[in-house]
């Protein structure tokens, strides 16, 4: 079973890369309005590096945890920026959370989402409401925890996670940025969706489709 889980994760990363590629210009535009206009480019370079790193991995012998830590290294070395340390830390924490696990059952997915969200929070020292990607990852992780606690089915679980992510992304438009480049804009950031939140919701959608 271990190969299957690793392969599923690798396919998830490919899906993520595909989605980012499609939405690259849109993400850069969002970043142009309140940041430096490179978010789509950065995410595209990062996920291409992840799929390249994973292509070099022997997925027959690799564990899910191996996949996540390979993704972390590939992403970080390729992009730097804000997203590099944030996602690299998130993926690394997810690798720790998956260590020793062969199955990607809903509990594993919940733990992975929680680890991602904590990793991003610890690295970026942002809080909810700061108008960052955290406003997507935290509610998504919470929705996952609630779904598992309530014994939801797999489709219900992912539906709940996706909706939480989308709502979180949408909500950033009503927030005043206090972290990252947009923080200097203060009130002028109002009305604009945070690019990192928008891409996070896309990544979670890709997870939901593939896991």
């Amino acid at each position: 079973m271990s190969e299957t889980a690793a392969r599923a994760l690798a396919q998830m990363f490919e899906r993520m890369s595909g989605v980012i590629e499609t939405e690259k210009d849109h993400l850069s535009e969002l970043d142009g309005a309140i940041g430096d206009g490179d978010h789509g480019i950065t995410m595209s370079i990062g996920f291409k590096a992840v799929t390249a790193a994973l292509a070099a991995l022997d997925l027959d012998s690799a564990s899910p945890s191996d996949v996540m830590s390979t993704a972390a290294g590939g992403f970080l070395d390729a992009v730097g920026a804000s997203t590099g340390p944030l996602y690299a830390t998130g993926f690394r924490r997810a690798a720790q959370a998956l260590a020793g696990r062969g199955h990607l059952d809903l509990a594993a997915c919940r733990d992975m989402l929680a680890a991602m969200s904590e990793g991003i929070r610890d690295r970026g020292k942002a809080q909810r409401g700061d108008k960052t990607m955290l406003d997507v990852w935290m509610p998504a992780a919470e929705a996952a925890a609630t779904a598992v606690a309530n014994g939801r089915s797999k489709p219900e679980f992912w539906k709940a996670v996706e909706i939480a992510a989308e709502n979180g992304a949408a909500a950033t438009a009503t927030m005043v940025a206090t972290k990252g480049r947009a923080a200097r804009l203060r009130e002028r950031s109002l009305g604009h969706t945070d690019p990192g939140a928008a891409s996070a919701a896309m990544l979670i959608k890709a997870m939901a489709a593939m896991l």
């Binding site: 430096d36 206009g37 490179d38 480019i41 950065t42 370079i45 970080l76 070395d77 390729a78 992009v79 730097g80 920026a81 804000s82 590099g84 340390p85």
Partner: peptide, 11 residues
Amino acid sequence: LGNIFSSPPPD
């Protein structure tokens, strides 16, 4: 040196 307008990674 990083990418355009992007910090270099730690390495």
